[in-house]
């Protein structure tokens, strides 16, 4: 029983990481209206920027992480302005397919710069905290805290600040928002900065809790997609629930079936959800 609970706990941590990774993706989907396959590559950009500062330049992890997040946020902004803005009129399908090209370009650049092999950050070893026979490491706790902080501050930002309200207005009805005097360009810039910054946070945590290799980003997109679909594309609050569901389902499944099937469980959930409830668990008809 303790072992089972341990799997559930690890699953919750995985879920929190997935929330961090997916929330920016869902945010882009909601405001910009397309699925950004390249979002996962931004996690890679952040993780390797952090690694570069931390390991190659010998900086402490905190300034390295800050640099990683900022670099990623501006890289995402630049890509949004240069690549996606001019093709918005061509519709979400073309933007979706274009983002595959972007993912290739980013992935290839990281490959060329970093090379193959496994990398780790220069940080103290994790210490585990025990309670009721369960274990959780301090880094895992940081993931949980960051997931809560990021989703809470995003919710506050969208509901309380002027820019946040502008973003919501734009995602609901771009033409109406523009005609009511909202600066569409500025709002779009803020969106790219925020969603890429969130990818940056997730990327840093990826470097902290896992070992880094250059193909790591690609594996994340599968799970990000799973969580995003389950949440109902574009819904932000449901991401929290569905991230936890996918995380727990993946880790608890190891209790019964071989660990190799972990990614399969995520997609089995997705297929079931899409077949019976195509609009996702959030239940809004945002599927158009």
């Amino acid at each position: 029983m303790t072992l089972f609970l341990q799997f559930v706990l690890t699953g919750l941590v995985t879920g929190c990481f997935l929330i961090l990774a997916t929330i920016g993706f869902s945010f882009t989907r909601r405001v910009e209206g397309f699925l950004n396959i390249a979002h996962a590559e931004l996690l890679g950009v952040s993780a390797f920027a952090t690694w570069g500062c931390n390991k190659l330049l010998g900086w402490h992890i905190l300034p390295s992480a800050a640099v990683g997040i900022v670099v990623t946020a501006f890289a995402g902004l630049a890509i949004g302005r240069i690549v996606y803005d001019p093709i918005r009129r061509l519709g979400p399908s073309v933007m979706l397919i274009t983002s595959v090209g972007v993912a290739y370009a980013i992935g290839g650049t990281i490959d060329a710069l970093i090379g193959t092999g496994i990398r780790t950050l220069d940080i103290p070893l994790a210490t585990s905290i025990r309670f009721w026979g369960l274990r959780i490491t301090d880094y895992q706790l940081i993931v949980v805290v960051l997931a809560i902080l990021c989703s809470a501050s995003l919710a506050l930002f969208l509901n309380r600040t002027k820019t946040g309200l502008a973003i919501r207005a734009m995602s609901a009805n771009p033409e109406l928002a523009a005609s009511r005097g909202i600066d569409v360009k500025k709002t779009s810039r803020a969106t790219w900065l925020i969603s890429s910054g969130l990818a940056g946070v997730a990327g840093v945590m990826l470097g902290v809790i896992a070992t880094l290799s250059t193909d790591i980003a690609f594996h994340q997109i599968l799970q990000i997609l799973a969580v995003a679909i389950l949440a109902g594309l574009g819904s932000l609050y449901a991401v929290i629930v569905s991230g936890l569901i996918v995380g727990v389902a993946m880790d608890v499944s190891v209790f019964w079936i071989p660990a190799g099937y972990r990614p399969l469980v995520a997609f089995a959930v997705v297929i079931l959800v899409l077949l019976f409830r195509p609009q996702g668990i959030a239940g809004s008809a945002s599927g158009k």
Binding site: V100, G101, Y104, G107, G108, D111
Partner: peptide, 11 residues
């Protein structure tokens, strides 16, 4: 580089 060029061509 091949990957990057493929991606950019595509875009």
């Amino acid at each position: 580089a091949e990957e990057v060029i493929t991606g950019i061509l595509f875009i």
